[in-house]
Design a protein around this nucleic acid. Structure first.
Lengths: 252, 252
DNA sequence: CCGCGGCCATGATGCAGATCAAGAATCGGC
DNA sequence: GCCGATTCTTGATCTGCATCATGGCCGCGG
């Protein structure tokens, strides 16, 4: 049995019930991978002033919903969030998982209404950044403007990677690629790249990768049998990084 | 046999060999769906001054290539372009088709190098818009800045639609959805939404939709037999819009 | 006019992953 | 700490599309 890490915040501990939480970008461990890249102290204070932090989302709580008026983009401070869109026949398609330091919600800009929904996969602290303020600020801060363009551009290239994955790769390759992606994002936050807890269910993984739950289970089992992984429910250990990379890279 | 429309420019006719071609945004039939949305006359002149137009690309010519330094985004003025990325094992994944009035190349912003390649599907006239100039300009033109954010955001939502299509839909649904997308983009340019020439090969369609050439052929044949389409090589006529919509919407 | 190369169509067969089914493990509420 | 609900695993079977194979068509150069 493994320790539960679910509710451990990666930033300062949260006060229980005040309206605004005592955190700021300057002391945030994630600042380097989040918004304020290449911004000086003064600018940071300005940015700081528009960012809103509300009380943490509980597991399964909705951050925003498709069709809802777009106002803010969001930064994950702790926990994990899934983005998804609902098809006309009511099924959902998971379009991404978002971990601490990552930004979501930018698909809402084009129509002033969210094109997708976002839901907490576990208890999660989120920073909301009102987009109109951000827009105004970025007109006078070239580095911020640039950073925003880059963030959106990265989202595009990542979506294109997923498109390629879905279109060209086998089940094993897809799963391996996802695990490696999570591992490297963990590394970026100075967490273990070889041992972690998946915050999402098998259903969500399958949905994201265009596969069924059963297939995800089978791939995990197979990789366990082959000594590539150690899988204990949501707890994953990568035993053979090389082999996993190989499994992912066969065609990608 | 149907008339060939391949090389007909949708804007002013092109001179044969001068360095800069005589076209401008103000008289461009596509201005409404291209960049200069919500920009006044003065601003337009400024924007105009940075846009470069070079001699048309011939069929199969490369517009930009993966890994190449990123300098400009591109607007299609006539013809058609495919965007694609090359997987590590050398195969390609088509990530989008771009028609007149549409913008491509924004995936290059995040790393200052193109994350994908783009190739002309037929003789095509392209406007290159140097991104650093655009960035500078947009800092002083809020409407332009907003327009750029919106363009990128739209690219994101469109990629997410493709992700959903690849992940959840059958071959018939995918093909039907693509045809409807092309039809509606034609309509936006005041061209026929029911009769058009596909600028891309079956291979490219299959690649884009995550299917093989054979499957594309079969779907076309089946839809022809069912009276939904009339297919004459690359010439497509949609005979039963309703049925096609139905075929696309089964799960989407 | 013929012959060659690229593109397209269509049939026969195979297979990866979906679907169906049934248990086992884990979670969450009381 | 128990019990129902949910999530996960594993097996058996089915199926949509890939793959393989072949032949037709069209455009182009000689």
């Amino acid at each position: 049995m493994s320790m539960r890490l679910q509710d451990v915040s990666e930033t300062a501990p949260l006060r229980s019930c005040t309206h605004e939480y005592k955190v700021n970008c300057e002391t945030c461990r994630l600042s380097k991978i989040c918004l304020p890249l290449a911004i000086n102290h003064q600018d940071l204070e300005q940015l700081e002033s528009i960012i809103q932090r509300s009380k943490p989302l509980q597991k399964n709580e909705l951050l925003y919903h498709e069709g809802t008026p777009f106002q803010s983009i969001y930064a994950v401070r702790s926990g994990a969030v899934k983005g998804y869109r609902t098809t006309s026949d009511g099924r959902e398609q998971v379009t991404g998982f978002y971990f601490p330091g990552e930004i979501l919600g930018m698909d809402g800009i084009s129509n002033n209404s969210h094109a997708s929904s976002a839901r907490a996969l576990e208890t999660s602290a989120i920073c909301a950044i009102p987009f109109d303020s951000l827009e105004r600020l970025s007109a006078s801060m070239p580095s911020l403007q640039r950073h925003l363009f880059q963030l959106m551009s990265r989202e595009i290239t990542e979506d294109q990677l997923l498109i390629t994955l879905l279109s060209k790769n086998s089940a094993d390759e897809r799963v391996a690629t996802l695990l490696l992606s999570i591992a490297s994002r963990n590394a970026r936050r100075n967490l273990s790249a070889s041992q972690f807890r998946l915050p999402m269910s098998r259903v969500d993984i399958g949905n994201y990768l265009g596969l069924t739950v059963e297939t995800i289970s089978r791939v995990f089992s197979r990789m366990q049998k082959n000594g590539i992984l150690c899988v204990d429910n949501k707890e994953i250990e990568i035993l053979d990084q090389e082999a996993l990379q190989l499994a992912a890279n066969i065609a990608n």
